[in-house]
Design a protein around this nucleic acid. Structure first.
Length: 427
DNA sequence: CACCTTTGACCAGGT
DNA sequence: GACCTGGTCAAAGGT
């Protein structure tokens, strides 16, 4: 496992971890996010796209529309996440690098509108926390106001955001955990570490981290112990597997789960590699009930996180979104090229209140589109055989909205139209 | 006994 | 309209 992820072996010469390691980082985060429709599966190419024709980035467009710099990301993460927060989070080892602009990240569709005070579906971080959590980053918090975009810094930030999530973000936390629970934690551990090491090789700021390396090792050990005890943990909800399929184009079997809570429409798909590692998780819908307080799966969840999750779920301000987590290690969600697809619900930002009215019950069962969850993840490229190397996790917001998302910075090709039974509107 | 997983069949959307 | 594919169902078996 770890060997397949050898950072020195360049099966992905430029970007085994998305663009976090890309030596030629010349684009802004927003631009990267906006650039990735056609090449979502190709981190390198996504990176290389760079700015498109000098147009506004997605985040810029969002800012224009919403009147704020922060997209109104109405989606919620899967309301529950298996959190076994390490006494020492890996995120605490990393300082926000100088030159990192929080506004840049907040502009990203992967982060929530601060007004929602909801964890990002991708990073799981609360906006305020995402950049202020770090006690040792005081200097950096000042520095982040600079708009000086060091792309080395940016690439570092990519990694950092993922590690933040392990600390504060439920979504990210569960993804991280999900990714490693089936296997030995060593897989995830190694991945985090390998990426960490890789970062060291090019990011000057990483030097600050080195002082914490021993603590980091402790963290890994603690994480390992935690996961051994809580192997079954996932997001704290109870799931029942109702199907498994072999999906074409991927050798990984896909499992289908339903939340066992009565009338809860939430489902998830989990795709695992042959070695048991989770390569993709897709949530469909969201829970219309609080997270079970005491389940065998969430024994180590942090109580504070549970409270947040439960309230989030209970308020039903939950759009019909799903989340995809890719990869099998930690969440590197905020900045991977693949994550650009998160912005799929651009228009939804403006419709958040609308959809919220229908509550969490407005789910796939009632939607003709629900039959397929697809569209959210053209991920064969990632999980395809031969690319089995552990990749950076991916979180994608899936929307089942029928609205056209044409002004989201992506290009869409209509490939068919059909009248669907039970739906007066042609699809 | 309750709950979960497995697995082949079935259904419906997409091409 | 046939075929392919993904998603779901449900019986059987396991824990």
């Amino acid at each position: 496992m770890a060997s397949s992820y050898d950072t020195s072996a360049n099966s992905f010469p430029q970007n085994a971890f998305g663009f976090s390691t890309h030596p030629f980082m010349t684009t802004s985060f927003s631009d990267l996010l906006a650039s990735g429709t056609t090449d979502d599966d190709n981190p390198s190419s996504a990176v290389n796209h760079g700015k498109r024709g000098g147009g506004l980035s997605l985040s810029d467009r969002i800012a224009e529309r919403t009147g704020s710099g922060v997209p109104k990301f109405k989606s919620l993460p899967p309301p529950s996440l298996p959190i076994s927060p390490p006494p020492v989070s890996p995120s605490s080892y990393f300082a926000i690098p100088p030159g990192l602009s929080p506004a840049e990240l907040l502009d990203s569709p992967v982060l929530l509108n601060a007004s929602n005070i909801l964890p990002s579906p991708t990073t799981g971080t609360f906006p305020a926390q995402a950049f202020n959590w770090k006690p040792s980053s005081g200097n950096n918090q000042q520095n982040v106001k600079r708009e000086d975009k060091s792309y080395t810094d940016f690439s570092f930030q990519t990694f950092q955001s993922s590690t933040n999530a392990n600390q504060t973000a439920q979504q990210q936390a569960w993804s991280f955990k999900e990714s490693v629970k089936e296997d030995d934690f060593s897989s995830g551990k190694n991945m985090v570490k390998s990426e960490y090491n890789q970062m060291q090789s090019f990011s000057p700021e990483i030097a600050n981290i080195q002082n914490c390396q021993s603590d980091y090792t402790n963290y890994q050990h603690q994480q390992s112990q935690s996961l051994r005890v809580n192997r079954k943990s996932d997001d704290g909800y109870n799931w029942r597997k109702y199907g498994q399929k072999q999906v074409k184009g991927s050798e990984n079997p896909r499992s289908y789960y339903k939340c066992t809570y009565p009338n809860c429409p939430t489902k998830k798909k989990v795709e695992r590699s042959l070695d048991g590692q989770i390569t993709e998780i897709v949530y469909k819908g969201s829970h219309n009930h609080p997270k079970p307080q005491s389940t065998r799966r969430s024994s180590s969840s942090s109580s504070s996180s549970i409270a947040i999750q439960a309230s989030s779920a209970a308020t039903s301000e939950i759009p019909d979104h799903s989340f995809i987590s890719h990869g099998s290690g930690h969440m590197d969600s905020a900045a991977t090229p693949e994550n650009s697809s998160i912005s799929v619900g651009d228009d939804d930002f403006d419709r958040g209140s609308q959809k919220s009215k229908s509550g969490g019950d407005e789910f796939d069962e009632d939607e003709p589109d629900a039959k397929r969850w697809r569209g959210e993840s053209e991920t064969e490229g990632i999980s395809a055989p031969g690319s089995r190397t552990v990749r950076e996790p991916r979180v994608v917001v899936q929307t089942t909205s029928d609205i056209d998302i044409l002004d989201d910075g992506y290009r869409w090709r209509k490939y068919g139209q059909k009248v669907v039974k039970g739906n007066p509107n042609p699809r």
